[in-house]
Simulated assay, not measured.
Amino acid sequence: MPVGLDVSALLLIMAALLVAGCAIGFCAGFFGIGGGAISVPVFFEVYRLTGNVDDIAMPLAVGTSLAMIIPTSYLSAREHARLGTLDLAVLRTWLLPILVGVICGSVLAGFADAELFQLVFVVVGGVMSTRMLFGGNSQQIKDTLPGRGLLSAYGLGIGLLSALMGIGGGALSTMILTLYGRTIHQAISTSAGVGLLIAVPGAIGYVIAGWGNPELPADAMGYVSLLTLMVVMPAAIMTTRLGARAAHTRSRAQLSRYFGLFLLTVALRFLVAIVFGV
């Protein structure tokens, strides 16, 4: 940490990271997401406050967020599997396409404008959240999952967009699965596993991309902050199971509304980032 920060500022940063960790863990369990929509902006502001320039703060925030998603997604998926709603067949189908999508997205991130993909999420997430909040079951386009080819294409798209937008893919996969007749409980449970499929190669990629960069903080391993993980991970791990269990105490209609509100919040967050650059 830079010398310019006094004790009160450091305590405030620690408190913010602990609160973020609790929120990341609970949301990972409750919504089947990795928590990137929460952790990336929080980590970014923390790294800026501690003296890192934006060109370092942003990839460090995304890389650390992806590393954070690994344990929370694993714990969330394991808890949902114990409760009997994790669809391993879908995860097996998506394993390779998502990996290919993440690799392609990581390559494209150096050339494509991430704001374009955030705008896609704003539109799609806004429409889906509105239909979940006000449209009952009308958001379904089919009662069964598509064939392996189309399902694999969806997996490729999830991996690609997640890598470009710096998110864990849970929101995207839940939207797709509910469109094809999966209950919200099944979709959220399976999406917890999707976060793990995306986070592992994503975090490794960010470690490699930042390896040896002299501008990184001393605690960083590539674009992953080990100090941040040490502070945030225990809080996140503590609340992940609570979130998963809470999801299974809610009715399908309640969980659909909560997820609709979550989608709307993330879409608005991306919209603010596009319009104001923050």
Rank of each mutant, 00 (worst) to 15 (best):
M58A: 11
P41L: 14
N52Q: 15
M58S: 11
G25V: 01
G35M: 14
I33F: 04
N52Y: 06
P41R: 11
D55W: 13
D55E: 15
A37N: 06
I38T: 06
G35I: 12
G36Y: 03
G25Y: 00
G36I: 02
V42T: 05
T50Q: 13
G36E: 03
G51L: 10
Y47V: 04
A61T: 04
C27R: 02
I33N: 03
I33T: 07
E45S: 03
A37Q: 03
M58W: 08
R48N: 07
F44K: 07
V53H: 13
Y47M: 11
S39D: 07
F44L: 15
I56L: 15
G34N: 07
F26V: 01
F31H: 06
G29Y: 09
P59L: 10
A61V: 05
D54T: 07
F44C: 06
D54C: 06
V40Q: 01
I56P: 08
I33L: 11
V42H: 03
P59C: 12
V40T: 07
A28P: 11
A57Q: 00
G35Q: 13
R48V: 07
P59F: 13
G25P: 00
D55F: 15
F31Y: 14
G51R: 11
Y47F: 15
F30S: 12
F43S: 09
F43N: 09
T50I: 15
T50M: 15
